[in-house]
Amino acid sequence: MKNRVIHMSMAPKYVKRRKAAVVVMAALLIAFGGALVLWLDASAESACVTQLDGKSTWAVQWSKERGEYVYE
């Protein structure tokens, strides 16, 4: 009769712990990725709004210099 040897890395409690660790890491990765996407979207929107404000200010000034600004 042979003694069956279970390697420590394949013991059920360690397999269960590895599965739980993979699930936790995946959840953290998804949460971090979602937060990063939201932050990048907000900063891109802010940059676009700032650029549009600058363009509109320049356009109003240019129209006033030419005497074509009728909104006063």
Rank of each mutant, 00 (worst) to 15 (best):
M1W: 11
M1C: 10
M1I: 09
K2G: 09
K2P: 14
K2W: 10
K2D: 13
N3I: 14
N3V: 13
R4N: 11
R4F: 12
R4V: 13
V5F: 12
V5C: 02
V5M: 06
H7M: 10
H7Q: 12
H7C: 05
H7R: 13
M8S: 08
M8Q: 07
S9T: 08
M10T: 08
M10Y: 08
M10K: 12
A11W: 03
P12V: 01
P12H: 02
P12A: 06
P12I: 01
P12D: 04
P12L: 05
K13L: 07
K13V: 06
Y14K: 12
V15A: 08
K16D: 09
R17H: 10
R17Y: 08
R18P: 01
R18L: 13
A20S: 10
A21P: 01
A21F: 05
V23A: 11
V24W: 06
V24D: 09
V24G: 00
M25I: 03
M25T: 05
M25H: 08
A26V: 04
A27M: 08
L28C: 05
L29A: 11
L29K: 07
I30F: 09
A31F: 09
F32N: 01
G33E: 05
G34T: 02
G34L: 07
V37Y: 09
V37R: 08
V37P: 00
W39T: 08
W39C: 04
A44Q: 14
A44P: 04
A44R: 15
A44Y: 14
A47L: 14
V49G: 03
T50R: 15
T50Y: 09
Q51N: 10
L52G: 00
L52P: 02
D53T: 11
G54S: 13
S56R: 11
S56I: 13
T57Y: 11
W58D: 12
V60H: 05
Q61F: 04
S63E: 10
K64W: 02
E65N: 06
R66N: 03
R66S: 01
R66W: 04
R66P: 00
G67I: 03
G67C: 01
E68D: 05
E68T: 02
E68F: 01
Y71S: 07
E72R: 06
E72D: 11
E72L: 06
E72F: 02
E72H: 05
E72T: 01
